[in-house]
Design a protein around this nucleic acid. Sequence first.
DNA 1: CGTGTCTTTGACGATTGTCAATGTACGTGG
DNA 2: CCACGTACATTGACAATCGTCAAAGACACG
Lengths: 235, 235
Amino acid sequence: MAARVDLSGTEVSALARLEDRPREVRRGAVLQRENERGNDLYVVRRGVLMSYVLLDDGSRQILRFHFRGDMIGMPGMIYGRSPETIAALSDAEVCQFDRAALSRLFEDHPRLAALILVLNQVERVALTDRLAALGRTSAKARVAALMLDMRNRMRAGDPSVVDTYTLGLTQEEIGDATGLTAVHVNRMLRQLEEDGLIAREGGRVTIRDERALARAANYVDRFEGLELGWLPAAR
Amino acid sequence: MAARVDLSGTEVSALARLEDRPREVRRGAVLQRENERGNDLYVVRRGVLMSYVLLDDGSRQILRFHFRGDMIGMPGMIYGRSPETIAALSDAEVCQFDRAALSRLFEDHPRLAALILVLNQVERVALTDRLAALGRTSAKARVAALMLDMRNRMRAGDPSVVDTYTLGLTQEEIGDATGLTAVHVNRMLRQLEEDGLIAREGGRVTIRDERALARAANYVDRFEGLELGWLPAAR
DNA sequence: CGTGTCTTTGACGATTGTCAATGTACGTGG
DNA sequence: CCACGTACATTGACAATCGTCAAAGACACG
């Protein structure tokens, strides 16, 4: 948040209080399970996590990947039971806090409350972009979009990432995120590679032609163009 | 909102102030256009609207249908330009208000701010349900889910709706919402009718076997089970 | 009555899924 | 160090779902 807005001293310490309960999560561990109680929120401090749902034929849809700074678990907090499972894709560290802490934040820091709303809306737009991708673009475009999006989100948390990064996903997970089968994901990755748009070796992906990849993917970067001048005053 | 929480007098009047600028929208009219400025918010008072995006091959993805009580335009308020188009599916009435009004609401009424966050999360979960439907369910299931969802949302605003309702969508629009072509939507509607799950005549849909329809659709009603005891105190 | 939009239907084709087999890397225990 | 097992990637053949194209029917509206 601090990257976007000048926070006041009391705001900084209010946010710091939210992050005083760090918790380690191992790769593969489940932080919150679908249909079970889970009323706490988490902020990702390190690592990558994902949310997914399981359908009753056993198939899985990955809803979202979570990176450093993301606030997760809000749907579980709103509903009595979590509508989705949250699991760690890598070893990760999260900071846990509860409903009461969020409630106090809303009372004492209207600007931070509004910023949380803004982050929610950024996530909403990312979800609708993905909705449009699943509904209206080809398998190749969806895989290309995922390659670009993961690069951008990793770069946001680590500026040393430029064109090459460690994806950290199996092809089955890519398929579960893009609505494809693992086999077809493999075909699409090969095609992207043959077209010279990406390169792969040992779990690392290199973007070779960003322009063409973005074109193939219908990609729009949604972290541009936020307007935050209207927020309430700091407290 | 009032259906879920006992609002205080000042809260009621704060909400009423948001709704003091009613505006009529004709069927087919566009309230906010993709990529154009549109920083105001709206609450739907009457009628049905939709949000959609256009892809550069000309195809359309309908993101969401908006009914009475929905707050719309938030993505456009956050970004300088709206990421989606909002258009009226029927004659409708909306109440317009601006960023400053929302900002004041956050300052003066933390509980209402938290409620807005809750409504945002309900919408988020609805979007992820649709994401899972597009990614992992068959054409038939998606159409079935739309039939059920539209019924439920109409019933929420008009308790006289039980099993029969006026859909108010062309088959092309159903396709743009479910990620299908109009032709295939037609085939799926016919199948649902032949299976005895729905009936159709003259733009009106009747749900004949709700249980089976819900099973065919993987449907979960997400307006159950909200827990709001943690909200800040009223002001 | 004519025009345009929407629905319906059939034939055909393309994209994507399914199944099955093989290859490869990596970790674990002997 | 080697053997083995497991998870993941790759490939090919085939099938199913869904899209495309085209034409005709239904319906509302001026």
